[in-house]
């Protein structure tokens, strides 16, 4: 639960030249806005039409979720009593219905996209039922790869980030399962190769996202996509690098390669999100990741070098953490100020 909150939190504050309620409240606290002006500003920022749209979206989201869940429960209850023909017929009919509704509501982006997402999910259900009914003996990774392959066309035309994320998750789940079921037991493929594979998928996704965003695809502009992909990419490479620090004697070539890739990835991401596509939140993620690694490294050295001084070693660790984090926050503050100054739209 901490991960999603962290991602949303990292995007809480950004350089935003639009008028926002917290800005209004800050001005009021400083005595620059009277109560009447404050009320008026709130009405401008959040007019009735905005509330109306908000309530409609909420009702759509909750209503659709409940109806879909109800349908799933209905089939779960009657599953045993249903024949093969009926089972496949119902699921395929539901997929077709979702696609038709999605086409019908093409102008209403949210409704259409939600139906397309439902069709993508139902495709997985269809494959699972197929495997269960005919006992194909296929490995689980095949299900996920086939699922990803079958929905690729819809995902490609969807212009809906959630569909793309579902596709990426399926691809990565398939990759992990392939390693668990085939690569490791049959070919002794090291865990680090899996980490590099997962990182590569996320790197490609991140590059595609950035190119699409620069090319002006509005549906790719939401910055949480960037955070999620960047966080997964760095985390995948973090694990083998962390393992090297903890156990330097067991550093295979793949592990070393993963560590070097982590170093290149962190430095590259730091450069890109500081200079080319300035983004304070992404930069904070990169720096936090690097801080963690540095603390582990220094901690390892400290615990190796100092013996029989338990109290001192704990104090030293506290100082190391404070020192590293202070350096990082010092750098981030400077970067934040510089980004603020570079942003031409900041002044109203």
């Amino acid at each position: 639960m901490f991960g999603p909150v962290l991602i949303v939190l990292t995007y809480m504050e950004s350089h935003d030249p639009t008028a926002r309620i917290p800005w209004i409240e800050a001005l009021a606290r400083e005595g620059l806005l009277s109560e009447t002006a404050q009320d008026s500003a709130r009405r401008h920022i959040r007019p009735a039409s905005a509330w109306h749209a908000w309530a409609q979206n909420l009702l759509l989201m909750l209503g659709a979720t409940l109806v879909l869940a109800g349908v799933v429960f209905f089939f779960a209850y009657n599953w045993q009593a249903m024949g093969r023909f009926l089972k496949f017929g119902v699921i395929q009919a539901a997929i077709v219905a979702c696609i038709l509704v999605s086409l019908r509501f093409r102008d209403h982006a949210l409704s259409g996209n939600i139906m397309l997402m439902a069709a993508c999910m139902l495709t997985g259900v269809l494959l699972a039922v197929f495997g269960q009914t005919y006992q194909t003996g296929a490995d689980a990774y095949e299900l996920f790869f086939a699922w990803a392959l079958l929905i690729t066309g819809w995902v490609a035309v969807s212009q809906f980030a959630a569909c793309w994320f579902l596709w990426l998750i399926l691809l990565q789940t398939g990759t992990v399962l392939y390693w668990v079921q085939v690569a490791e037991p049959l070919h002794h493929t090291p865990f680090e190769t899996l980490c590099i594979g997962i990182a590569s998928i996320n790197l490609l996704g991140l590059i595609a996202r950035e190119i699409g965003s620069v090319m002006g695809f509005a549906w790719l502009k939401a910055r949480w996509h960037r955070a999620l992909l960047l966080m997964t990419l760095l985390s995948a490479l973090f694990i083998p690098t962390f393992a090297i620090i903890l156990d330097i004697d067991d550093s295979s070539a793949t592990r070393l390669a993963a560590a070097i890739l982590w170093l290149i990835g962190s430095a590259g991401a730091g450069f890109v999100y500081r200079k080319l596509l300035p983004d304070m939140a992404a930069l904070s993620l990169v720096v936090t990741n690097a801080c963690l690694m540095l603390i582990v490294l220094l901690g390892r050295i400290a615990f190796d070098q100092v013996h029989n001084m338990e109290a001192f070693i704990f104090l030293l660790m506290a100082v190391i953490i404070l020192g590293v984090v202070s350096l990082a926050t010092f750098y981030l503050r400077r970067a934040s100020r510089a980004m603020h100054a570079e942003q031409p739209e900041r002044a109203p």
């Binding site: 504050e13 930069l283 953490i321 404070l322 984090v325 934040s336």
Partner: peptide, 20 residues
């Protein structure tokens, strides 16, 4: 500070306190 810095500072302070 931007929230990223606040989170980093919070985590740093918390872990340093645990070692203290």
């Amino acid at each position: 500070d931007p929230i990223g810095i606040k989170i980093l500072a919070g985590i740093g302070g918390w872990f340093a306190a645990l070692f203290l």
